[in-house]
Nucleic acid binder design. Structure first.
Lengths: 239, 239
DNA sequence: CGAGGGGTTGATGGTTGTCAAGGGCTGTGG
DNA sequence: CCACAGCCCTTGACAACCATCAACCCCTCG
């Protein structure tokens, strides 16, 4: 059930059989959520965290006047709101962008893991620090890149993150979001998101239609994104 | 020496005398760094983390062509690069914006803390998740606010964070950065940072000169920033 | 005394937002 | 079966925000 999560942890560190048992045993139930539903609402007291089993979810902060800013996307295998374990409430919403299923892990069990399996706890801590690294990469995009650069960077990031859990085909992958949502991720209006996608298409770099991303020229995509994957910490750690 | 750090931890959770001893004992040495120096360079293998004792430091990501984006500021008492404990190398530079002093905490000692003091480990984990929350707030600013809103938000955040460690006067505080650097934090050119500061001054909201921030109208500052401090998790946790 | 860094100002242009309108598709109900 | 609403995508005209370039000032420091 949490195979994709374990796959992702093991891509970066060793997980012993005992640790795997502890993690699998920490799951209480599975939750399914339809697309466009808020899974966790900002401020709500949390007593469990969720691992995304399937679908695309996201962290989103809403401003008072309807403006929204997505701060991170989540793919299958991500411990979506592990940070609620220490924060106890979230400063943002967790939303399902497509139909999603989650494994719920009660915080009491996570507390036990920190007490009995310190190495596993450090691996989970790493996972939350990786989320922070992704936030930083988005800050750079939002602060320093123009529209086409921001969009190219997002498509690069998602390609690598989905590939890591086997959710890409040769040069395409599913990203079931509207152009409106794309704009809310990239700090631009839906109108400008549309025009930026047209630019990418006309330049023969990439196509995005109906929630399907098709990459035509990886090299130029990376180049327009100024993409450097080191922030995703893909290398293995030595224990 | 790390009194400000303990003050900050204790603002949010209980720290027992034994935990305090463990943390104080984990410090190996004190490092002093002059202003405008890189403290930790991106990619460099890390074997210790640093607590900022005095001064203003920052996380900064550099692009190839000289553009730069600051992703977070650090004030005295912050565990500046605690995330390098699990990441082993950083995806960004740590820089001293003013003269700074740091306490170096070897990762081996942090590992011991995770093994012998799981509650303290969770409190430190919380601290890295708080950094992520600050990143998210910056993403919202960079993605969804105009220049004056972004600048007001930064000055609000720094006021609260400095107040928490007793580094503000009635309505002013030190922020020893140039307008160039301000621009690199807020995703704008130094010229536009200058004009935005003039707007804030002309509206009687705030003055910034010579590294000194003087707030004239807190209410209007918060309003133009659309400031909601909940992302700073200032409330105490029950254990 | 000259160099250099930081701050300030003005003129101009480009990127992106805003507003408005229309097209295609899907689902639903008469 | 068709009418219609509603959502998403697309396009055009225009305006606002912010970047760029260039010049000048002030201060500090060698």
């Amino acid at each position: 059930m949490i195979d994709k999560h374990l796959m992702k942890l093991r891509a970066r560190d060793d997980i012993s059989p005992e640790e795997e048992v502890a993690l699998r045993g920490a799951i209480k139930e599975v939750i399914t959520v339809p697309a466009d539903r808020v899974v966790v609402r900002e401020g709500e007291p949390m007593s469990y965290s969720t691992i995304l089993l399937s679908g695309i979810a996201a962290r989103r902060k809403d401003l008072h006047d309807g403006r929204r800013q997505y701060t991170e996307l989540h793919v299958a295998g991500d411990f979506t709101d592990l940070h609620s374990f220490t924060l106890k409430r979230l400063d943002h919403d967790i939303v399902a962008l497509s139909d999603c299923s989650f494994a719920a892990v009660p915080h009491v069990h996570l507390k036990e893991i920190t007490e009995r399996h310190p190495h596993l706890a450090r691996v989970l801590w790493f996972a939350t620090n990786l989320d922070a690294a992704i936030h930083r990469a988005w800050e750079v995009s939002l602060g320093s890149r123009n529209a086409i650069g921001r969009m190219a960077h997002l498509f690069c990031e998602m390609y690598i993150r989905l590939e890591l859990v086997g959710l890409t085909r040769a040069s395409s992958y599913d990203l079931p979001v509207s152009q409106q949502e794309l704009g809310e991720m990239l700090g631009m209006t839906p109108v400008h998101a549309n025009r930026t996608l047209q630019q990418l298409r006309k330049q023969g770099i990439l196509e995005f239609a109906g929630g399907l991303v098709t990459i035509h020229d990886v090299a130029r995509l990376k180049h327009t994104a100024e993409f450097d994957p080191s922030y995703l910490y893909l290398e293995r750690q030595q224990r």
